[in-house]
């Protein structure tokens, strides 16, 4: 159904971000998200994962550095509908009076005319996207009526409907059962094989080596990045999660080894 298209990479060049309360959230971050891969972004809470995401999406203005998507600056890439974003669940107002169908249709607004009247193609792509995440039967539900996993899938469908070449998922596995997690991972792998570039932030260390081609470790700056095999080492993880009890780290690490 979907055709393979030219993949785009993301280059983050010497990025620093300072919040308005003068806190330095991220400093001198360099990294490259290779095109056509699933890249995991791993780091402790408050380590700047969401900040880096928001900078890549242009929601935050960097105090220094630049970001490029393929050959484009972020704003241009967005105007060309190249970048889709799946937000964290707590960033969404779930009481908002919109249906699942309405939300997925919002993925198409960038293609529509001034009045945002959906074309037959827009409707078809919305239905196909809903089908693909298995949410067709819930399309008339208000978004707050969904379970945690269904909520994620609804917003994933919006990203699919947008047909972005680069997809960013912020903590897609929080509040989601194992079955849904598996389902989201399968979908990400399909999308990668179709030529999408996927960047996903997660706490879930156990599953990273099962689906991430590459990993970026982050704690206020980029500590390591590369293929998951070379990056995801005990030494690197201890450095990244420095403050955590070593025991729990070892457990997580042991678990991820078993999974491989």
């Amino acid at each position: 159904m979907q055709t393979t298209t030219q993949a785009l990479d993301i280059t983050v060049d010497n990025l620093s971000i300072t919040y308005s309360n003068a806190r330095l959230a991220l400093y001198n971050a360099y990294c490259r998200v290779e095109s056509g891969t699933i890249t995991g972004l791993v780091g402790p809470n408050g380590g700047g994962k969401s900040t880096l995401f928001k900078a890549i999406m242009g929601f935050l203005q960097p105090s220094q550095g630049r970001i490029r998507v393929g050959d484009f600056p972020v704003l241009k890439a967005q105007k060309r509908q190249l970048m889709a974003y799946v937000p964290q669940s707590d960033e969404v107002d779930w009481n908002f009076p919109v249906s699942v169908f309405d939300v997925v249709m919002m993925g198409r607004y960038g293609y529509m005319n001034f009045l945002r009247i959906p074309s037959a193609k827009d409707r078809r792509l919305v239905m196909e996207s809903l089908e693909r995440v298995g949410m067709s039967e819930f399309r008339h539900h208000q978004i707050g009526e969904l379970s945690g996993g269904q909520k994620k899938r609804a917003f994933l469908a919006r990203a699919l409907a947008q047909e972005g070449k680069v997809i960013l998922l912020d903590e897609p596995f929080t509040g989601v059962d194992v079955k849904t997690e598996k389902r989201i991972i399968d979908l990400m792998m399909q999308l990668r094989d179709e030529g999408h570039t996927i960047l996903v932030s997660t706490h879930d260390l156990a599953s990273i080596s099962t689906f991430c081609d590459r990993t970026i470790l982050l704690n206020r700056t980029i500590l390591a990045s590369g293929t998951t095999e070379e990056t995801f080492t005990e030494e690197n993880l201890t450095m990244t999660f420095g403050g955590l009890p070593v025991m729990s780290l070892q457990q997580m690490f042991a678990k991820s080894e078993v999974d491989v």
Partner: peptide, 19 residues
């Protein structure tokens, strides 16, 4: 009206699609 509703609901998405 559709843009305003999107702006109320999810301004980040509005930005992400280049609006």
């Amino acid at each position: 009206r559709k843009d305003l509703l999107l702006f109320c609901f999810d301004p980040n998405h509005a930005k992400a699609i280049g609006l």
